[in-house]
Design a protein around this nucleic acid. Sequence first.
DNA 1: GGGCAGCCTAAGCGCTCGCTCAGCTTCGGC
DNA 2: GCCGAAGCTGAGCGAGCGCTTAGGCTGCCC
Lengths: 208, 208
Amino acid sequence: MSTAEETAGGETQAWGEVTPDAARRLLVAAVEAFAERGYHATTTRDIAGRAGMSPAALYIHYKTKEELLHRISRIGHEKALEILRTASRREGTASERLADAVGSFVRWHAGGRTTARVVQYELDSLGPDARAEILALRRQCDAEVRGIIEDGIASGEFDVLDVKGTTLAVLSLCIDVARWFSLEGRWTPDEIGALYADLVLRMVGAAK
Amino acid sequence: MSTAEETAGGETQAWGEVTPDAARRLLVAAVEAFAERGYHATTTRDIAGRAGMSPAALYIHYKTKEELLHRISRIGHEKALEILRTASRREGTASERLADAVGSFVRWHAGGRTTARVVQYELDSLGPDARAEILALRRQCDAEVRGIIEDGIASGEFDVLDVKGTTLAVLSLCIDVARWFSLEGRWTPDEIGALYADLVLRMVGAAK
DNA sequence: GGGCAGCCTAAGCGCTCGCTCAGCTTCGGC
DNA sequence: GCCGAAGCTGAGCGAGCGCTTAGGCTGCCC
């Protein structure tokens, strides 16, 4: 799963829930364009062109350009939250669950960095209502990670000075992967996931 | 120095080297506008307006809107590199130097997050030549941090599995502060600097 | 086979963008 | 007191933007 979804176009399958087909093609085209040049530098003509349609076709499926970003952002955040939830609620020690959460979260940011870049860095381009909705999802992500860290402290596995600060730093570290990661670089998503899981366990003072 | 330079307008003094006065006012206005809305969403009319001038005045001091971003980016990266160099070359153990580097680098990103946000996140809006120049400065930042970590390994202070990966993670953690930090939040730049210095020492396995 | 959704395009509207230019004011040197 | 340079403005150009509209082409139900 982790090394399967690759080069920009290859992340398509993640959007299988979006119908009809033309709407999905437009959404995938928008993700690629937003990731490459940013929301404001992307034109609706460019999105429609990538999807093989005329500029007007976009407005049959989406009311505005911002609605595209909103849809992308919500689906992406729901996926991110699902990843963290799955890791948080599995069986195992807090160390195992934290390593799982960080590893899979980082793999998602690295392997699907086209999507992740849009999801994590174009939040400010949304209007107030849409942004508020997305921020609620982000707070849930934060709560999942903080929960694991608190479990680890309670069980004596972790040694943490500032729970909220450390939670923030762990999520920040994972999210920033979307900024710098490149498949042409020296690491695979799996390698970065493993490296980061180790680094985070060190950050929370997990006994080795 | 760390808690002195504050609210968006208050970072002005950092641009003292820019002359004449009107050019500096335009540059400061551009930093604020780019940080708030991003490079592509900012208009030259907005920049000129913030500086109290007509749109045409901008082009007396700068050839294009991109030249403004380029100048901001270079000055900002030079400042960042200077901060890391100073910490790297001082007296002390590798642990002390790494804590100093991370602490002051994070304080700069938090306290001057308006500038830092532009410097760290608008790189892709530069043209190829300008981007190449800035990337060279970033590689020097990377080398400074990697140098400290390698010193710590050589002296036996640090226990690190992947030097390049850990260096990247440390810088990534610091840089991402510019994305989420807010002066209205629960931390001061000094507090975040201290917290992050501790977290990074844990990441490199520094003996406590 | 006629009617009607659903999906799409060509054309283009109104607007704002980055940027230019002719001309005005200010001011130091002589 | 005149001059040229420096700094700035008002007006506006050409281009490209997000988005709309009128109309055509399917394919499916009766």
